[in-house]
């Protein structure tokens, strides 16, 4: 049963939503978007809620690992809340990623825009936080509504992170 008829169709288009503003919340969506373009798929990225920090001019250089409420780090929540712990952990992870040739978030977002992927900000979140298009890096195409997002995502897969 491995003839052409039963072979799954390859994915041609993805719309990836980034909704979190922590380092571990932002990277997976970026890696998936970049990887989709590298495979020749069409890709669009939508930033919503705290995920907007990844495209915010003043903030995207300062995205940190969540050291509180993150059992995956395997150390005490109280220790994670001490001043500076999040910064140290972020430096440590950034250093490890640099070694693996994973770019820092600002460079990565720019690179993804260069691959031809579209970058969009969610209107509801932009309004909620009192921001406007000028707060974002130049690579952001537009601030769009959820309806416009669904229109743009038509015919592809939606990935929420």
């Amino acid at each position: 049963m491995s003839d052409e008829h039963t072979k799954p169709q390859p994915i041609e288009k993805v719309s990836i939503i980034i909704s979190k503003g922590s380092l571990e919340g932002v990277y997976p969506g970026l890696i998936m978007a970049n990887g989709a373009r590298a495979e020749g798929m069409e890709a669009n990225l939508f930033f919503t809620f705290f995920g907007l920090d990844a495209i915010h001019k003043g903030r995207n250089e300062h995205i940190k690992v969540a050291t509180v409420g993150n059992p995956g780090l395997h150390f005490a929540t109280m220790a994670g809340g001490l001043p500076g712990v999040s910064t140290v952990m972020t430096h440590y992870l950034n250093h490890k990623m640099e070694k693996l040739d994973i770019p820092p978030i600002p460079e990565f977002v720019e690179m993804i825009a260069d691959t031809g992927a579209g970058l969009y900000a969610c209107k509801a979140s932009v309004d909620l936080f009192g921001l406007d298009k000028s707060d974002f890096i130049d690579q952001v195409h537009d601030v769009i509504t959820v309806g416009e997002f669904y229109e743009m995502a038509a015919g592809g897969h939606i990935i929420f992170t």
Binding site: R37, T115, G116
Partner: peptide
């Protein structure tokens, strides 16, 4: 550049 690379090789 990355932009040019994707223009030269659109499938990745």
């Amino acid at each position: 550049s990355i932009k040019e690379l994707y223009q030269l090789f659109p499938k990745g």
